[in-house]
């Protein structure tokens, strides 16, 4: 059991989250992928804290959890709002940035 195992695992989770972010169009899955990536960073922080016998990493992870929570609340509010307005959670429909005349 070395810290490397934890770190490799966290990296794989991060990669899976990134993959989910790019291939899925479902806004919920994208949200969950972001959560997953943040959690994998959390795991890395905890691992380093344990390996260095220092509480600072743990505290950073703790603060991260708070950040994850606030991010979740905002993201979910946005999802609810978008679904109420457009009755869909397909990211392909949200193209307000586009200037229709120029294409």
């Amino acid at each position: 059991m070395t810290p490397h195992h934890f770190l490799y695992l966290a990296t794989i989770l991060f990669g899976i989250g990134l993959l989910g972010l790019t291939i899925r169009k479902n806004l919920f899955v994208i949200y969950l992928s972001i959560e997953l990536m943040l959690s994998s960073v959390n795991l890395i922080l905890a691992t380093f804290s344990r390996a260095n016998n220092s509480q600072d990493g743990s505290i950073m992870a703790l603060l991260m959890i708070a950040v994850i929570a606030s991010e979740a609340s905002i993201f979910l509010a946005i999802i609810v709002y978008l679904y109420k307005s457009t009755k869909t959670i397909d990211t392909e429909t949200f193209t307000n940035l586009r200037n229709e005349e120029s294409i």
């Binding site: 795991l43 905890a46 703790l62 994850i68 929570a69 979740a72």
Partner: peptide
């Protein structure tokens, strides 16, 4: 569980409470 394995008992607790109990439930 991973946090527990790393002797991070408070993080374990916070993870269960916040992530599982709040974020996932809310989702």
């Amino acid at each position: 569980g991973m946090f527990a394995l790393l002797h991070q008992s408070f993080l374990f607790l916070a993870q269960i409470l916040v992530s599982v109990g709040a974020v996932v439930t809310l989702s």
